[in-house]
Amino acid sequence: MAALINVPSKAKRGDIVEIRTLTSHIMETGFRHTADGNLVPRNTITSFTCRYNGAEIFRADLFPAIAANPYLSFFAVVKESGKFEFEWIGDNGYSSAASASITVE
């Protein structure tokens, strides 16, 4: 588990909830050189998706200009109890997933 997810555990029907995610990743730009002059190869997260009860509510294409340990905050309108699923995909076959549940009253 390399991700921190912050989703309220409870909400009222129709509420707008803030979803905050932080995942640990080096986000190497591919522009840096080592002391002996070799280029450090690019290693970034390239895409992020969030699904709410199976439906995609947020998607991001990310580039090397995203800071290390990418933090994202966005908002969703909740209509029913369920699960948020998060997925990060990156260079070199990187993939990471997390989920969070919400109870809607």
Binding site: F58, P64, A67, P70, S73, F74, F75, A76
Partner: peptide, 25 residues
């Protein structure tokens, strides 16, 4: 930046159009 594009977010119907992130400059 060496390449200008930093991030691109898709906002489907029903999602609030607001996003926060951290960029390199």
């Amino acid at each position: 930046n060496p390449f200008a594009l930093a991030a691109s977010y898709k906002i489907p119907d029903g999602t609030i159009p607001a996003v926060a992130n951290r960029l390199k400059m």
